[in-house]
């Protein structure tokens, strides 16, 4: 259709409409992100301007033992953190969403409200609640865990701390993918499911053969959102374990590593904002890679499968 406005030569109002958002977004989001990437190529110099050092900061991050050990540790932990979300959070969310959208189930609104409730609480509250729940002094969960033969205290053992923190995060966020899956499942037409039923398929079979393939695009979205969220995570570990991410950096992920490096910590550690930007750049690249793989790999294939 022909644009009405196109007939007028000067369309000043377009500028008025676009400029506020453009300026705000450019100044306080695009610029800081790009400038932060730039800063990672510099080094601070006492009393003078920053000096350009090329990729030296990255070289140190990857190879200098003072930095590299922590960096690879945080990166590895971050992948574990992500894996727990993919393997636990999203399947549970899918299960709950499937049950909530099953025809004839009563009290859906109430269940949904309760299941989503933890997601509305802040990290600070959730972090402290779970720290208390897991405390060996209080014993609410520590004693049952011990009875089950798990390594206790769960937050203090190298082999269990990271998974425990990840599971708390799962507890907090399971509501979000659940909502996304629900929204997608609801939009599936009833006829398709009925047709499957008539063919004698069980609920289980209907789900995997009919409903699940139809929500694959949502599975993709949930996957990429989980990825971005996890590689940008910081708050929960900070509130549960503190910036030092004990035991022995066992729960350190890129976000806490970034914070500690940028702002210092402890009684005697000086902050290092430039190395902070170097870590931020790596996080940026990781997230960008994930997003690109999603956009050009997964999403394309999903859309094709759908059509």
């Amino acid at each position: 259709m022909e644009q009405v406005a196109a007939r007028r030569p000067r369309r000043f109002y377009i500028l008025v409409f676009v400029l506020p958002a453009f300026i705000l977004y450019s100044m306080f989001m695009a610029f800081p992100l790009l400038d932060s990437l730039r800063l990672s190529l510099y080094q601070e110099q006492a009393g003078g301007p920053d000096v350009f050092v090329g990729l030296a900061n990255f070289e140190r991050l990857f190879n200098d033992p003072v930095w590299s050990e922590r960096f690879w540790n945080a990166l590895r932990n971050n992948f574990v953190f992500f894996a727990v979300h993919m393997l636990v959070q999203n399947p549970i969310a899918l299960l709950l969403a499937a049950l909530l959208t099953t025809r004839g189930v009563r009290g859906v609104a109430l269940f949904r409200t309760i299941l989503f409730a933890p997601t509305t609480l802040s990290f600070v509250i959730i972090g402290f609640i779970w720290q208390l729940m897991l405390s060996p002094l209080w014993g609410i969960l520590n004693n049952p865990a011990k009875t089950l033969g798990l390594p206790t205290p769960l937050l203090g053992q190298t082999q269990s701390a990271l998974v425990t923190v990840s599971l708390v995060s799962v507890w907090q966020f399971v509501g979000l993918p659940m909502m996304l899956f629900s929204a997608a499942l609801i939009s599936i037409s009833e006829e398709l499911i009925d047709a499957a039923r008539v063919d004698g398929a069980t609920g289980w079979q209907t789900f995997w053969r009919v409903r699940f393939p139809l929500i694959l695009p949502t599975v993709g979205i949930v996957g990429i959102l989980t990825f971005v969220g996890n590689f940008n995570a910081f708050d929960l570990i900070y509130t549960m374990q503190g910036a030092l991410a004990p035991p022995n950096f066992g729960t350190d992920i890129l976000g806490t590593f970034f914070y500690r490096t940028t702002f210092g910590g402890g009684a005697t550690q000086r902050p290092n904002p430039i190395m902070g930007t170097t870590i931020a750049t790596i996080m940026f690249l990781i997230i960008l890679t994930g997003v690109l793989i999603y956009l050009f790999g997964i999403q394309r294939r999903l859309v094709r499968a759908e059509s």
Partner: peptide, 16 residues
């Protein structure tokens, strides 16, 4: 901007 967290620009934002 939908996918890139602004947190990664913290150091520059503080300067700004």
């Amino acid at each position: 901007g939908i996918m890139i967290p602004v947190r990664l620009g913290t150091v520059s934002l503080i300067r700004l």
